[in-house]
Computed example of a mutant assay.
Amino acid sequence: MGYKIMIVEDDKNIAKLLGEYIERYGYSSIVLEDFDKVIEIFTQEKPDLVLMDVNLPKFDGYFWCTKIRQKSLCPIIFISARDNEMNQVMAIESGGDDYITKPFHYQVVLAKIKGQLRRVYGEYASKGAEDVIEIEGLLLYPERLEINFKDKKISLSKNECKLLKILMKKYPKVVSRDNLLESLWDDQNFVDDNTLSVNITRVRKRLSDIGIKNAVETVRGSGYRLNATWRNM
C-alpha cells in the first residue's frame, strides 16, 4: 500500500493506538504532536489522507480542515466524540470527506481509510483527480514528477518520469526499446539508444535512492520490464 496517514488527535493514547493499528496494514503514520504547526507539518510530509479530531488546542479541526483545503484535496476523515448532526454537517462544509464518532472500532476506521484512498487514488478515482500509478506500494505521481515508496519521496526528471510511467503501465510485460524511445521523443531533442540507456540508468538510481534495487530488468533483444523486487519488503 505505502500510503501516508497524518493523525491530528490531541488524545495521545488514541493517536498512538491509531498509528500502531494502521501501520499493521502497511500504511505509514504521522502522529502530530505540535498543534501550532498543523499546516507546516502537512506541507512538509504531504500525507495521502488525514484523520482529524474536532476538539483540538486553540483551533478546532474544522479550522484546520479549511486551511488544508486551501492547499490540497487529499481525503480528510473527522474523528470526534461530538455525535450530533450539526457537527457532521460542519465537517462536510469545512471540506471533510467522512465523519466517525467516538468510541469507534479500529476496523471501521481502517475500512473508511481504504474507501477514501480507493476513491481518490485507486480504481474509483474520478478522471479529474490527480493521476497516480501504483504497483505493490510504489506510487508514481506523473503530474508532480515524484515517486513515493513507504515513507520516502523523491523527485524525477521529465524523462525519468516518462520511462517509469510506461514501465509501470505495462507491468509486468516487457516494453520494447522502440516504445521507450518513442516516449522520450519530442520535436526539440534527438533521442537515440545511448540516450535511452542513460535515462534507464538514472531511473534505476532514483529507485535505488528510495530503497528499491534491481527493479528495472534488461531483457536482451527485447527491451526492459519492471520487476517488483520490493513486493515483500
Score class of each variant (00 low, 15 high):
residue 4 K to I: 12
residue 5 I to Y: 02
residue 7 I to K: 14
residue 7 I to S: 14
residue 10 D to A: 06
residue 15 A to H: 06
residue 16 K to Q: 06
residue 17 L to F: 01
residue 18 L to P: 04
residue 18 L to S: 13
residue 19 G to D: 01
residue 20 E to K: 10
residue 22 I to V: 14
residue 23 E to V: 10
residue 23 E to F: 10
residue 32 L to Y: 09
residue 34 D to G: 15
residue 35 F to M: 09
residue 37 K to H: 08
residue 43 T to W: 03
residue 43 T to C: 10
residue 43 T to S: 15
residue 44 Q to M: 14
residue 44 Q to S: 15
residue 46 K to Y: 01
residue 48 D to W: 10
residue 50 V to K: 15
residue 54 V to Y: 11
residue 55 N to E: 10
residue 55 N to L: 09
residue 56 L to H: 12
residue 57 P to R: 05
residue 58 K to V: 12
residue 59 F to H: 15
residue 60 D to F: 02
residue 63 F to H: 13
residue 65 C to D: 06
residue 65 C to G: 03
residue 66 T to N: 11
residue 72 S to R: 03
residue 73 L to I: 00
residue 77 I to Q: 10
residue 78 F to K: 09
residue 78 F to Q: 13
residue 80 S to V: 00
residue 80 S to I: 00
residue 84 N to P: 05
residue 85 E to Q: 13
residue 85 E to W: 09
residue 87 N to D: 15
residue 89 V to C: 04
residue 91 A to N: 09
residue 91 A to V: 06
residue 91 A to C: 11
residue 93 E to M: 10
residue 94 S to E: 03
residue 95 G to T: 07
residue 96 G to Y: 02
residue 99 Y to K: 09
residue 99 Y to S: 04
residue 100 I to W: 10
residue 103 P to L: 07
residue 103 P to N: 08
residue 105 H to M: 06
residue 106 Y to Q: 10
residue 106 Y to I: 05
residue 106 Y to E: 11
residue 107 Q to M: 12
residue 112 K to P: 12
residue 114 K to W: 09
residue 115 G to M: 03
residue 117 L to H: 04
residue 119 R to D: 01
residue 119 R to L: 01
residue 121 Y to F: 14
residue 127 K to T: 03
residue 129 A to T: 04
residue 131 D to E: 15
residue 134 E to L: 05
residue 137 G to M: 02
residue 138 L to Q: 14
residue 138 L to V: 13
residue 141 Y to W: 05
residue 141 Y to I: 03
residue 143 E to Q: 14
residue 143 E to Y: 10
residue 144 R to C: 02
residue 146 E to N: 06
residue 148 N to D: 03
residue 149 F to K: 06
residue 151 D to V: 02
residue 153 K to L: 08
residue 153 K to P: 01
residue 154 I to Q: 15
residue 155 S to P: 14
residue 156 L to G: 15
residue 156 L to W: 01
residue 156 L to P: 15
residue 157 S to R: 11
residue 157 S to I: 04
residue 159 N to H: 08
residue 169 K to D: 14
residue 169 K to F: 13
residue 172 P to Q: 02
residue 173 K to S: 11
residue 174 V to L: 04
residue 175 V to T: 12
residue 175 V to F: 04
residue 176 S to V: 03
residue 179 N to S: 12
residue 179 N to D: 13
residue 180 L to C: 13
residue 181 L to H: 08
residue 183 S to E: 11
residue 184 L to A: 08
residue 185 W to I: 04
residue 188 Q to H: 13
residue 188 Q to C: 06
residue 190 F to H: 08
residue 194 N to Q: 08
residue 194 N to R: 00
residue 194 N to V: 04
residue 196 L to F: 03
residue 196 L to K: 04
residue 198 V to H: 04
residue 199 N to V: 00
residue 200 I to H: 03
residue 200 I to L: 02
residue 201 T to Q: 14
residue 202 R to D: 07
residue 204 R to S: 08
residue 204 R to D: 08
residue 204 R to E: 07
residue 204 R to C: 10
residue 207 L to I: 02
residue 211 G to E: 02
residue 212 I to Q: 07
residue 214 N to V: 00
residue 216 V to R: 02
residue 221 G to D: 00
residue 225 R to M: 00
residue 226 L to I: 00
residue 226 L to P: 05
residue 229 T to Y: 00
residue 230 W to L: 03
